Amino acid sequence: MKTQEELTEIVRDHFSDMGEAATLYVQVYESSLESLVGGVIFEDGRHYTFVYENEDLVYE
């Protein structure tokens, strides 16, 4: 099982292909040891929320 830090790095790496991230945040109260819930805000103003669970990243 991966730590939240490892899950955060996986998510950060995925979003790095989409541009320069200004902020990546984790909603600790919705996350667990198995999943990471949060969002990313890019330098150009785009904002996505995400759920990373079971090696699957879903974002909108």
Rank of each mutant, 00 (worst) to 15 (best):
M1S: 10
M1C: 15
M1P: 12
M1G: 10
M1A: 10
M1Q: 09
M1K: 13
K2L: 10
K2G: 03
K2S: 05
K2V: 05
K2Q: 07
T3Y: 04
T3F: 06
T3H: 04
T3S: 09
T3D: 03
Q4T: 05
Q4P: 06
Q4C: 15
Q4A: 08
Q4R: 10
Q4N: 05
Q4V: 13
Q4G: 03
E5D: 08
E5N: 07
E5C: 14
E6Y: 07
E6P: 04
E6N: 05
E6A: 07
E6G: 04
L7E: 02
L7F: 03
L7A: 04
L7R: 02
T8D: 04
T8S: 07
T8C: 15
T8Y: 10
E9W: 07
E9N: 11
E9Q: 14
E9V: 09
E9D: 08
I10E: 03
I10F: 05
V11N: 02
V11H: 01
V11T: 02
V11K: 01
V11W: 06
V11E: 03
V11I: 10
V11A: 04
R12H: 04
R12K: 08
R12G: 03
R12V: 05
D13L: 15
D13R: 15
D13K: 15
H14F: 15
H14P: 02
H14L: 15
H14M: 14
H14K: 11
F15N: 01
F15G: 02
F15D: 01
F15L: 05
S16W: 10
S16V: 07
S16C: 14
S16R: 14
D17T: 15
D17Q: 14
D17M: 14
D17R: 15
D17K: 15
D17L: 14
D17I: 13
M18G: 04
M18T: 05
M18V: 05
M18F: 10
M18W: 11
G19W: 10
G19E: 04
G19N: 05
G19T: 05
E20V: 14
E20G: 12
E20M: 12
E20A: 12
E20P: 11
E20F: 14
A21M: 15
A21N: 13
A21I: 15
A21W: 13
A21Y: 12
A22Q: 09
A22T: 10
A22W: 13
A22M: 14
T23Q: 09
T23K: 09
T23V: 13
T23E: 10
T23R: 10
T23N: 07
T23G: 03
L24C: 13
L24R: 01
L24Y: 07
L24Q: 01
L24S: 01
Y25I: 10
Y25V: 07
Y25H: 05
Y25Q: 04
Y25C: 13
Y25D: 03
V26C: 11
V26T: 01
V26G: 01
V26S: 00
V26W: 07
Q27N: 12
Q27G: 06
Q27R: 05
Q27A: 10
V28Q: 08
V28N: 08
V28A: 11
V28H: 12
V28G: 07
Y29D: 04
Y29Q: 03
Y29P: 01
Y29F: 10
E30K: 07
E30N: 14
E30Q: 08
S31D: 05
S31E: 11
S31H: 07
S31M: 11
S31R: 06
S31P: 13
S31G: 09
S31V: 10
S31N: 06
S32L: 09
S32T: 09
S32W: 10
S32D: 08
S32R: 06
L33E: 07
L33C: 12
L33W: 08
L33I: 10
E34Q: 14
E34R: 12
E34G: 15
E34C: 13
E34F: 07
S35V: 14
S35K: 15
S35F: 15
S35I: 15
S35C: 15
S35W: 11
L36G: 01
L36W: 07
L36V: 06
L36E: 00
L36Y: 06
V37S: 08
V37H: 07
V37Q: 07
V37G: 01
V37D: 00
V37I: 12
G38V: 12
G38L: 13
G38Y: 07
G38T: 02
G38H: 03
G39H: 12
G39Y: 15
G39P: 00
G39M: 14
G39F: 15
V40P: 00
V40G: 00
V40Y: 03
V40T: 01
I41A: 01
I41Q: 02
I41W: 10
F42Q: 00
F42S: 00
F42T: 02
F42G: 00
E43A: 13
E43N: 09
E43H: 09
E43S: 12
E43I: 11
E43Q: 11
E43R: 11
E43M: 11
E43L: 12
E43T: 13
D44C: 10
D44T: 04
G45Q: 01
G45T: 01
G45A: 02
G45C: 10
R46H: 05
R46L: 05
R46W: 11
H47Y: 09
H47V: 07
H47R: 06
Y48G: 00
Y48N: 01
Y48S: 00
Y48K: 00
T49M: 10
T49K: 09
T49A: 06
T49C: 15
T49R: 08
F50N: 00
F50I: 03
F50S: 00
F50K: 00
V51C: 11
V51N: 01
Y52K: 00
Y52G: 00
E53T: 10
E53K: 11
E53H: 09
E53R: 08
N54R: 06
N54D: 05
N54C: 15
N54Q: 06
N54Y: 08
E55H: 12
E55Y: 10
E55F: 12
D56G: 12
D56T: 15
D56V: 15
D56S: 14
L57R: 01
L57Y: 04
L57C: 11
L57T: 01
L57D: 02
L57Q: 02
L57V: 05
V58F: 10
V58C: 13
V58R: 13
V58K: 12
V58H: 10
V58Y: 11
V58S: 09
Y59S: 02
Y59Q: 02
Y59M: 09
Y59G: 02
E60G: 06
E60V: 13
E60Y: 13
E60D: 06
E60M: 11
